[in-house]
């Protein structure tokens, strides 16, 4: 809970290494959205989430829902850093029988609270967790990470409206605003205009940050947890870079769902400081 900014940054760097290794080994998977979310995920787990890695089903744990479930390598890397799974388990990504299924799956992997893979479902599930916590008179929270492309699903807005209606102050969303979806840039696929205004008009508390600046991320997480924002659901809009941290993946729609080749893998390890050039 008390990790310093430097410690979280180092944790995120290690996670980036594991993300690249996972998709490289599998020669499949989703590096882009894993790299854009990773600083946020590392900070959330290292400094906010009330969880017990040795008791993953602890009933009063905070819930984390990776609604953009394809970005599973990022979550698996963080779960390994936190001790929910081992680093050896990461080798099972996309391998038959492995705990690290292609998309995060609560049936297969300790620490995963929602079986994702179909976009636009996690926020509703998170709302269910938040309503249940309120009924239980528990102070546990539900954190939900959604993608910007994912926001195009109508169901996201059904949940957004309902969560505000029910004043769910224990529901906290992080939007990975990396500006790219599957086929192309969001701007080309489906323009979303004023995203903060949309959430505000749905009754949410809204804050925008740079999702790769650790100091801003801490401020953003403070905002999500702040008492004055417990009147209803809150969303942190994190401006990120898809593929962030690996030069040739950055802002490159081709690396939404593609693995690096041998050459690219070596380059990534150099850029991440794992090996010398």
């Amino acid at each position: 809970m008390s990790a310093s900014i430097a410690e979280v940054e180092e944790m995120a760097r290690k996670c980036r290494v594991e993300i690249v290794k996972m998709v490289y080994r599998a020669q499949a998977g989703h590096p882009g959205g894993s790299l854009s979310e990773i600083d946020l995920l590392a900070a959330l787990y290292a400094t906010r989430m009330r969880v017990r890695p040795d008791e993953p089903k602890w009933s009063d744990r905070d819930r984390f829902i990776l609604s953009k479930g394809h970005a599973s390598p990022g979550m698996y890397a963080v779960l390994a850093e936190m001790g929910f799974i081992s680093h050896e388990d990461l080798k099972s990504y996309r391998v038959l029988g492995g705990v690290c299924q292609g998309h995060v799956d609560m049936k297969w992997c300790p620490g995963v609270d929602f079986s994702a893979g179909s976009l636009g479902m996690g926020l509703s599930f998170g709302m269910g967790c938040a309503v249940a916590a309120r009924l239980d008179k528990s102070d546990r929270r539900a954190f939900v990470m959604i993608g910007d492309g994912e926001m195009q699903e109508g169901s996201v807005w059904e949940a957004a409206m309902a969560a505000a209606h029910h004043e769910l102050g224990n529901l906290k969303v992080i939007l990975d605003r990396n500006r790219i979806q599957n086929d192309d840039f969001c701007e080309a696929q489906m323009r979303m205009f004023d995203i903060p205004a949309k959430w505000r008009s749905f009754g949410w508390n809204v804050k925008e940050i740079d999702g790769h600046n650790m100091a801003e991320i801490m401020d953003g997480l403070d905002f999500l947890e702040a008492d004055e924002n417990s009147n209803g659901p809150s969303i942190l809009i994190a401006h990120t870079i898809k593929g962030g941290g690996i030069s040739y993946m950055e802002n490159n729609p081709a690396f939404h769902g593609a693995a690096p080749n041998d050459e690219q893998y070596k380059q990534a390890m150099i850029e991440l400081g794992e090996v010398e050039a």
Binding site: A28, G29, V95, Q101, D105, A116, G117, S118
Partner: peptide
Amino acid sequence: SHGGTHTGTDGSSA
């Protein structure tokens, strides 16, 4: 597209 279990490593959701 991508119907059936033959679609592979994406897993059960796909």
